[in-house]
Structures are given as C-alpha cells and as structure tokens.
Design a protein around this nucleic acid. Structure first.
Ligand SMILES: [Mn+2]
Ligand SMILES: [Mn+2]
Ligand SMILES: [Zn+2]
Ligand SMILES: [Zn+2]
Lengths: 147, 147
DNA sequence: TCAATATATTAGAATAATTCTAAAAAGGCT
DNA sequence: AGCCTTTTTAGAATTATTCTAATATATTGA
C-alpha cells in the first residue's frame, strides 16, 4: 500500500510543505505550521497565534510570528483577509471562498464559494486585472433573550 | 418658486445637515463637510482629508479630523470601508454599493449595486443578523506597455 | 564530521495610524 | 453679557506592525 494522500499529522508532511516553498524547516516554522495546518482550516491573528504557541510551550518571538505569517502568505500557504482595520487575519483556506465576520467576537467564518455566487461582474476599469474578489458579510449578534 | 431640491453648494445646506444629526455646525465641521459633501461622492482617508484642508487654508487638527469622521459616521453621514489594514477609508456614498480597490494606488471606486448582484445568500449563523455586505474587487494594475 | 556560508530568530528600538487627556476655545440660550 | 455645554487641540499615549543588527541555526560539501 502506497499512501497517495499525505498524512497531515506527521512532522514530515509539514517539513516537506515548508521545503517545497523554499524555506528552511526550522523549529519555529514547524511548530507554527503545526498549529496552522494540522487542525482544519483556521483564521488567526498574529497575537492569537503567538498566544497559542506560548500556551503549548513553544518559544517564538512575535517578530518571528509576523515573519512566518508573511513568508507563508508570500509562499501561497496562507492568505491575508482584510476585515478589521487594526488587526490582520491570516487564513489557511486557500480555496476561493468568502466570509462571515462576527463583529462582536472577531470570529471569521468561511462561506464556500458554492453558497454565494456573484451574478454579473461589472466591467473592469481599463488596464487593470482582478487580484481577488472578497465578500464579507458582517454580522452583529442578536441577543437571543432580551436583557 | 419653492426649491424642493436642496442646493448643496450653500453653507446653509451643510449647516442644516450637521444640525440635523445633533452636532454643532462649527467652523471645522462646516469646512470638512464642504470638502466631503460638495463634490460628488468621495472616499477619503484621515490624512488625505487633512491634507486637503491644509491646502485650502483651513486650520484643523488631525484629532479633529478623526473626531469628525467618526461623528459623521456614527450620524449616518459617512460609512467606513475596510479595504486596507493600515488606513481607514471613509465613504460619502451611503447607498448600497460595492468597490473596486486599486491596490497599487489606494484608489477606491464605486460599483453600483445594480452592476453586481449576489446570487444566493447562504443561511446566516444562528442568532446573528446582517450588519452589511461588503464586496471588494481588488485590482492590480497591468502595465499597458511592456517595460 | 566540520568548517564555511546562507538563512532565521530575536530583543528591543522605531514607525505609523489612531486614540486619549485635559486645558483652552467656541457655540447656544436666556 | 453670562452661563453651561460641546468642541477643538497639542501633545502624550497606545497598539499593531516593522525594522535593526546581533546571535543562533540550518545547509552544504570537503
Ligand atoms: Mn490601525
Ligand atoms: Mn496597523
Ligand atoms: Zn476563510
Ligand atoms: Zn463607495
């Protein structure tokens, strides 16, 4: 039996992904890749990821968190989602999709692009091409029960 | 002849809009309202608006620019558009519409909502309601001629 | 296995947008 | 005018992020 589906649980898998994009698989990058890629798709901020790393006893500086998030983004392992003016969100889901943004909690939730289609794209301004189309549905919580 | 359409050129018009939302029509607010509302719809950042004010000899502090933009936004005269992580954009167009964002220049361009329809909205998460739906088409410039 | 070299990490300083503070100025009302 | 409220503002503070330049780690190939 030759496994054709990579086992995402292994360190080898993470190491090969990192090597594949031309980066050295350092302790920090492997650990962060573990947090990012081993538990389904995620939306994280730098601070949140740093907090998680600390909690698991991984010692990484915040500078490295930023470096890594940006390197992974440049490498196509992550994308950045702009939903909040004062915090950057990074998304491990590289498929085309959109987002619910819970304004009260800061939670980002995926909307598969199959569930939300754009009808007729307007003509683009001369001499420009689409880099991405971002749909964000901002949600405000409704109290279930009156206060 | 009783004019039923307000003349947006007059200071009285601006003054009444400002009063209408419960704010005092100060020198600064009138001047900024002039820049914002007397020349068609606009998308401005705090710095840009401040720069324009200076250029026209209006002395306003940056703190007042921020105060005013936020007060106008809270009052429903402006809306904030989140397209850039490190700069806030304010939009004088309060109709439902979407945006082209020129990533190279920082220019925001309106897309009337008639030109871009959303097909089928996905079901909302339990206990939440839509605050807004923001569609941003990010554009990268294409060189007209090869370098 | 061991330098030699290239890359990565990090503490701490620097930056930049924005917010805060609290004191002075202006607006509104009688 | 006089009184009270709202606004403006300079400058300090805050916060996310980036930069610097010194140290540490990874890779290569003899
Ligand atoms: Mn900010
Ligand atoms: Mn920022
Ligand atoms: Zn996502
Ligand atoms: Zn607009």
């Amino acid at each position: 039996m030759t496994p054709s589906v990579p086992n995402r649980e292994t360190t080898d898998y993470l190491e090969s992904r990192i090597r594949a994009v031309g980066l050295r698989p350092t302790r920090q990058r492997l650990a962060l890749a573990g947090l990012l890629f081993q538990a389904g798709h995620r939306h994280v901020t730098a601070e949140k990821l740093h907090g998680e790393a600390m909690k698991r006893g991984i010692r990484v500086s915040l500078a490295t968190i930023y470096n890594t998030l940006h390197q992974f983004t440049a490498a196509g392992l992550l994308r950045e989602v702009v939903v909040d003016t004062d915090r950057s969100y990074f998304d491990t889901n590289m498929e085309r999709h959109h987002h619910f943004f819970h304004e009260d909690t800061g939670l980002l939730e995926d909307i598969p692009s199959s569930e939300l289609e754009l009808k007729n794209l307007p003509p683009l301004p001369e001499g420009s091409e689409i880099s991405s189309i971002d749909v964000v549905i901002r949600l405000s919580g409704t109290r279930k029960l009156p206060l």
